[in-house]
């Protein structure tokens, strides 16, 4: 199958030469979920930001090839990048508390995004926003549209962000720790919803998580990252049954200990 997004030899380093991501390659096909796991600070988030060229080019150098539906992302102008961001590749950030502007209502921010990418009336944008919020199981969506970000809990905000990312039907969804801020009840629902999006619209999802349970539930393939390098890349079943790299083995042992504590 032809990949929607392919990344070849992506390298990211600071301008004073400190490497952050070292020569990584992977691809995402339509309807596929690729999991990216690793410790905090290993370069998972930098990778996802590099895919959208969101890193500050004054202090960060990136090289390699990023191809999104036959378009070379590295060669795009700022203007064309803006149409891709949010439209073709959507991003769910790790920290919902700081991802929204505190001075505008949720409704304003949702509708701004919808109307930047799609020509539609305010009325239509509102109904699409309400529909999107309902799909992530938020009660009373009309009220949420009138709320400011600080009036919602972290779990609710994260679901708003998922609604926002998904309402434009992107081909690729980068979910950077999408459930880390959610409680256990909401976590499973959000994962169900991501799966529903994948199954319904054939969205390719890059699922970044440090939680191996999330990866176990969702991924087709898994990339294991350590210090900016992909040390192992395998099918999810293969990875859990026969981890090859010592680092993966260590992660799985820790995961197993936690699972043991859970069942004890």
């Amino acid at each position: 199958m032809k990949p929607v997004l392919s990344v070849e030899h992506l390298t990211v380093e600071t301008t004073n030469g400190q490497p952050l991501v070292r020569d990584i390659s992977f691809s995402l096909a339509a309807g596929q979920i690729v999991g990216l796991v690793g410790e905090s600070g290993c370069g998972k988030t930098v990778t996802s930001l590099a895919l959208l060229r969101l890193l500050d080019e004054k202090i960060i150098r990136q090289s390699g090839k990023i191809v999104l539906e036959e378009q070379d992302v590295m060669a795009l102008s700022d203007r064309s990048l803006r149409t891709i961001r949010g439209g073709k590749i959507a991003f769910i950030m790790q920290n919902p508390m700081s991802a929204f502007t505190p001075v505008y209502t949720i409704g304003h921010q949702l509708m701004e995004t919808i109307r930047t990418h799609d020509r539609c009336s305010k009325h239509e944008a509102t109904s699409r926003a309400v529909e999107a919020l309902r799909e992530v199981n938020l009660e009373q969506p009309e009220r949420i549209l009138k709320a400011y970000p600080f009036e919602l809990s972290g779990g609710m905000l994260q679901r708003v962000m998922i609604a926002l990312a998904v309402c434009l039907r992107p081909n690729v969804l980068i979910a950077d720790e999408p459930t880390t801020a959610l409680d256990v009840y909401n976590q499973k629902q959000v994962l169900y919803y991501l799966e529903k999006v994948r199954a319904t619209y054939g969205t390719a999802i890059l699922l970044i998580s440090h939680d191996l349970s999330v990866i176990a539930e969702m991924a087709d393939d898994v990339l294991v990252m350590q210090d900016g390098e992909i040390v192992e890349q395998a099918d999810v079943f293969e990875l859990f049954d026969r981890p090859q790299h010592p680092y993966t083995q260590r992660l799985l042992i820790q995961h197993g200990m936690q699972a043991g504590a859970r069942n004890a």
Partner: peptide, 12 residues
């Protein structure tokens, strides 16, 4: 609400 610990036990 807990998640599976191994892909073989997954429910989503």
């Amino acid at each position: 609400a807990m998640l599976a610990t191994h892909p073989r036990k997954r429910t989503i």
